[in-house]
Amino acid sequence: MTVPLDTLAAPARRGSARPLLGRLGGLARQPVLMVSWIIVLVVIGWAVAPRLFTSYSPYEGDSAASFAPPSVEHWFGTDRLGRDLFARTVYGAHTTLTATLLAVLIAFGIGTVAGLIAGFSGGIVDTAVMRLVDVFLAIPSLLLAMVVVSVLGYSTQNIALAVGISSIASFARVMRAEVLAVVTQDYVRAAYGLGRGRLGVMLRHVVPNSLSSVVALAALEVGTAVLAVASLGFLGYGAPPPQPEWGLLVAEGRDYVATHPWAAIMPGLALALVVVAAHRISTSYRKEHRR
């Protein structure tokens, strides 16, 4: 009689197994979503191979062309030193996106494990983890990240670490809620009935079936983390000035906003566009994976 139980114990993972072509067809019917994907992919391209997108150097400028307004030659215009702002934005993608990715990975990794342990063990462990989560949630992430960066020292890596630490709590909370819902399911009880150990049930059944909400949160968190990284960069906690980082680019342009507005606004718009696109993609992911 173990056969039916065994099929019961191995539920289909949520998510669609639609063929790639079908997915692309669906994408074509949602132009906004398609544009969002294009924006995100282009910006990832900037981060991976900036040379393919611009022939200008992000560091060397032509001082004769100081503060040239946006034109065919300089898409985003130039800054005080005559550096091409589009090139600086393209090269800055690497710094900002790496920091974002690192931050999300830290929050996802630690938060998911903490939430899993809390939800799966219950009792005093659960209480301890969740009270700790309460504390982290009580301090606004930007403030917490600022404090962490001030202790670690100013650099882009430390910004990533700080942003990651400040968003661990929300991952832990979502993961715990999912785990609590999953452990009451029949297939989990069936797996216990089949004689699997707690660790086996956790890894084989609980983890794969609780992850989808957390992955959706991670997708949403990418947009939020880009904003947080750029905000800390804007406040001056990140890479030192000659480096192109998006928040820093806006901060540098800010001093000249009265006379040369593009210096702050063009990199800022690029940043906003990426965040909007990332949010759009994560929203559609969540809609697709809603039970």
Binding site: G223, L227, A230, S231, F234, G247, V250, A251, R254, V257, A258, P261, A264, I265, G268, L269, L271, A272, V275, V276, A278, H279, R280, T283
Partner: peptide, 21 residues
């Protein structure tokens, strides 16, 4: 979702540029 996506420093600078300068 647009409102939460635009960085506060950008909207602030845009406000300054348009309504002040």
């Amino acid at each position: 979702s647009g409102a939460v996506s635009v960085p506060v420093f950008l909207s602030g600078i845009l406000m300054l540029q348009i309504f002040s300068f």
